[in-house]
Amino acid sequence: MNFPHKAPRLAGLAAIALALALAGPSPALAKLDPGGAAVVETATTSPACPLARIGAQLVHCDSLTGAGVRAPAWVPER
Protein backbone atom coordinates (compact mmCIF):
# COMPACT_ATOMS: atom_id res chain seq x y z
CA MET A 1 0.00 0.00 0.00
CA ASN A 2 1.16 3.43 -0.84
CA PHE A 3 0.28 6.07 1.83
CA PRO A 4 0.63 9.74 0.88
CA HIS A 5 3.00 11.82 2.97
CA LYS A 6 1.38 13.79 5.77
CA ALA A 7 4.04 16.52 5.84
CA PRO A 8 2.40 18.79 3.21
CA ARG A 9 -0.96 18.49 4.95
CA LEU A 10 0.55 19.32 8.36
CA ALA A 11 2.50 22.24 6.89
CA GLY A 12 -0.71 23.62 5.39
CA LEU A 13 -2.57 23.27 8.67
CA ALA A 14 0.30 24.96 10.52
CA ALA A 15 0.27 27.85 8.01
CA ILE A 16 -3.49 28.30 8.41
CA ALA A 17 -3.22 28.20 12.22
CA LEU A 18 -0.43 30.80 12.13
CA ALA A 19 -2.45 33.06 9.82
CA LEU A 20 -5.48 32.84 12.11
CA ALA A 21 -3.36 33.58 15.17
CA LEU A 22 -1.84 36.66 13.55
CA ALA A 23 -5.21 37.86 12.23
CA GLY A 24 -6.62 38.21 15.75
CA PRO A 25 -6.57 41.41 17.77
CA SER A 26 -3.21 42.51 19.05
CA PRO A 27 -2.61 43.87 22.56
CA ALA A 28 -3.15 47.57 23.07
CA LEU A 29 -0.25 49.92 23.56
CA ALA A 30 -0.56 52.54 26.27
CA LYS A 31 0.99 56.01 26.18
CA LEU A 32 1.95 58.00 29.23
CA ASP A 33 -0.37 60.94 29.80
CA PRO A 34 1.79 64.06 29.95
CA GLY A 35 -0.68 65.75 32.28
CA GLY A 36 -1.53 69.38 31.96
CA ALA A 37 -4.51 71.51 32.68
CA ALA A 38 -7.68 69.50 32.75
CA VAL A 39 -11.09 71.10 32.50
CA VAL A 40 -13.31 69.74 35.23
CA GLU A 41 -17.00 70.44 34.98
CA THR A 42 -19.04 70.15 38.14
CA ALA A 43 -22.46 68.60 38.09
CA THR A 44 -25.24 70.92 39.09
CA THR A 45 -28.68 70.10 40.33
CA SER A 46 -31.65 72.30 39.88
CA PRO A 47 -32.99 73.58 43.21
CA ALA A 48 -36.37 74.09 41.55
CA CYS A 49 -36.63 70.35 41.01
CA PRO A 50 -35.78 68.44 44.22
CA LEU A 51 -35.93 64.71 44.68
CA ALA A 52 -39.36 63.63 45.89
CA ARG A 53 -41.48 60.53 46.04
CA ILE A 54 -44.95 59.64 44.86
CA GLY A 55 -46.18 56.68 46.84
CA ALA A 56 -43.17 54.35 46.89
CA GLN A 57 -41.46 55.68 43.72
CA LEU A 58 -38.68 58.25 43.57
CA VAL A 59 -39.39 61.20 41.26
CA HIS A 60 -37.03 63.92 40.01
CA CYS A 61 -38.33 66.64 37.67
CA ASP A 62 -41.40 64.60 36.66
CA SER A 63 -39.19 61.64 35.80
CA LEU A 64 -39.34 58.34 37.64
CA THR A 65 -35.95 57.42 39.03
CA GLY A 66 -34.65 54.70 41.32
CA ALA A 67 -35.12 51.76 38.90
CA GLY A 68 -38.25 50.58 40.67
CA VAL A 69 -36.65 50.41 44.14
CA ARG A 70 -38.96 51.50 46.95
CA ALA A 71 -38.34 55.08 48.05
CA PRO A 72 -37.27 55.55 51.67
CA ALA A 73 -39.72 57.25 54.02
CA TRP A 74 -37.36 60.19 54.68
CA VAL A 75 -37.77 61.45 51.08
CA PRO A 76 -40.56 64.04 51.08
CA GLU A 77 -43.76 63.05 49.29
CA ARG A 78 -44.99 65.19 46.42
Rank of each mutant, 00 (worst) to 15 (best):
A71Q: 05
A19E: 05
G55D: 07
A73N: 11
A43F: 09
C61N: 11
G12L: 11
P72N: 09
N2F: 15
G36K: 10
V59P: 00
P50C: 02
C49G: 03
P27S: 12
S46W: 07
E41P: 05
R78P: 12
A43Q: 06
A43R: 07
A7Y: 10
A30Y: 04
A71S: 07
H60Q: 12
L22D: 09
A17E: 11
A17P: 07
T42N: 06
F3I: 15
A14L: 09
W74F: 15
K31W: 07
P27T: 07
M1I: 08
A37Q: 14
A7N: 11
P34F: 06
V75H: 03
P27M: 07
G36A: 13
P25I: 03
P50N: 04
P8E: 09
A7L: 15
G66W: 00
V59F: 00
A14C: 09
A71E: 03
H5S: 14
T44S: 03
G24Y: 01
A48G: 12
E77W: 06
V39A: 10
A38S: 08
C61Y: 06
G66Q: 03
V59S: 01
T45S: 05
A14D: 00
A73I: 10
P4G: 06
E77C: 03
V69R: 04
V59W: 02
S63M: 00
L18D: 00
L13P: 08
A30P: 08
A23R: 09
K6T: 13
L20E: 09
A30E: 12
M1V: 11
G24T: 00
L32N: 11
E77G: 08
A15R: 14
A21S: 13
I54W: 03
G36W: 05
L64C: 01
L18G: 01
G12T: 13
L22Y: 02
T44G: 09
A14M: 09
A73H: 10
R53D: 01
R70M: 02
G36T: 11
P25A: 13
L10M: 14
S63P: 01
G36M: 13
R53C: 00
G66T: 00
L32E: 15
L32R: 15
N2I: 03
P47M: 03
P76S: 05
A28H: 06
A67L: 12
E77S: 14
V59M: 00
A37G: 04
L51C: 10
A67T: 08
P27R: 07
L29E: 08
P25L: 11
G68V: 05
E77D: 06
I16C: 12
A11M: 15
A21W: 08
F3E: 15
T65G: 02
A67C: 08
L22S: 14
D33N: 15
C61D: 15
P76T: 08
A52P: 00
A30K: 13
T42I: 04
S46H: 11
P4H: 06
N2H: 12
C61R: 12
I16M: 15
D33E: 13
P4E: 02
G24W: 00
I54T: 03
L20W: 08
A11K: 15
L32K: 15
L13S: 12
T65C: 02
S46L: 10
L64V: 05
S46E: 13
V40F: 05
A43T: 07
A28W: 01
H5W: 09
G55F: 05
S46T: 14
